[in-house]
Design a protein around this nucleic acid. Sequence first.
RNA 1: GGGCUUGUGGCCUAGCCUGGACAGAGCGCCGGGCUUCUAACCCGGAUGUCGGGGGUUCAAAUCCCCCCAAGCCCGCCA
Length: 485
Amino acid sequence: MRVQVTGPYINFLLGGDYLRETISAALKPGFGNLPPCDTRVVLEHTSANPNGPLHVGHIRNSIIGDTLARTFRKGGRRVDVQYYVNDMGRQIAIVVWGVEHEKDEGGNPKGDHHIARLYIAANRSLERDPGITAQVDALMQRVEKGDTEIQKKFREAVSECLEGIKETLRSMQVFHTKFVWESEFVRNSDVDRVLGRLRKLDQAREGATLSLDLSEFGFGKPYILRRSDGTTVYAARDLAYHTWKGRNFDRVIDVLGSDHKLIGGLLQTTLGLLGEKQPEIVYFEFVSLPEGSMSTRAGKFISADELIAQVTEKAMEEVTKRRPELAEAERRAIARSVAIAGIRFDIVRVSPEKSTVFNWKDALDFERQSGPYIQYAHARACSILEKGGDFTPAFSFTTEGEIRLAKQIARFPAVINSVVETLRPHLLATYTRDLADLFNAFYRDNPVLKSEGTVRDSRLALVKAAQQTLRESLETLGIDALSSM
RNA sequence: GGGCUUGUGGCCUAGCCUGGACAGAGCGCCGGGCUUCUAACCCGGAUGUCGGGGGUUCAAAUCCCCCCAAGCCCGCCA
């Protein structure tokens, strides 16, 4: 290492040994993996109500959550990823009422879309005739009391919707290890037990309802846990779920929309009062439409399925334009990967605290700063390596392009670590984009296959290291690292 | 009304926690580059009161205070 003074700054220049070491590490599979660690992490994300398909707002949750899960695993953590299924709230009772009373006008045959149409229709009926509210209330009471016939109806409606949601998640390469049904905590009496403990808190206020007075913690309004008709609210069931998570895992992480900030704070405070582990909550701001915020109830949303279909179609056009010689099935497969890369990268690259407005033009743009741009850099690297054939890695880096690329590669494990520490997955996205930029700059100024001797072996080693690092980064972002596109 | 978050060229975004080298990219715009490792790429150019005003500091996009604007929350919904 050399030290140089420039004006008021002292620059520490990293020498050849450092680059040799890291580039040689990057040549091995699994570059960027952090040492395994025994901490058991449970990460909850998406958990959208099963009253309709995932829309472009929900998938910000899914993509942030899935990217965090992948990064944690790369960081050596053991991670359980859970989707908490709300299968007994008021919204689901409305769905069940809709299944019984509404007619489906037809459209996308997927179960989640079918359920959404009934849910939207039921809400319209509810607006016209407030008397229906009593019927919905009755459904909620019967399901909570354990009426098996009604429970079956709830389960069937929820399952139908959930199957559609699962299909959407799979197509985005978002994976959960477990779907936890809320009603489980009512059935196994965890909710009763946690209510029993809550009742004994100094902050408990019990009359017709059971609530907590958390004003000493800055929460102005009572935290209602049980309705006057005896049924529990979501908050109570969520407390039971988080108590269970806290007792079975070392770290509990939730990814939630910023509209949950207040209830997230109430949840954390209450768990603290009970002496249970408090979850770490990652909040993200909303995705809205140019005409305003999305609403499943009002039918005002762009579904993830529609987004994926449109982006895939655009990707197919692009692939066909560039690679007309490929068979259709092959083009189709590339288009699917490119589409998911476009969608996932576009969402994960923005810091979570920034609210965004969805627009089709940007969603369909595969140019610079996009996921496909990074995939393309990776594919170019693969192509050079394929043409280069066997080589003996050398580590002599002298040009500016070589050194800057090598340094960026070297940063990768630190980036994984910082995402794990800060729970900010966009850091990985910007890192990967910069890596692709630096690879392109290197590619432009440093001929690889035409060079000779040590220069060629060094550059091939660098290309290989860059390709591996791009692949590891892309896979951690849930994006396919295509070798040809 | 109260709370939380955001405000960076026409558009979009990184940097803000941990203050320092000309505020980095991208889109769009103007002008170039495919007999040369994949042009989903690259090069050059124009475009910035870092929302506004105070303050702290040798030094502020970054820290503090006030103001303005936008989004979200303030249900016996989730």
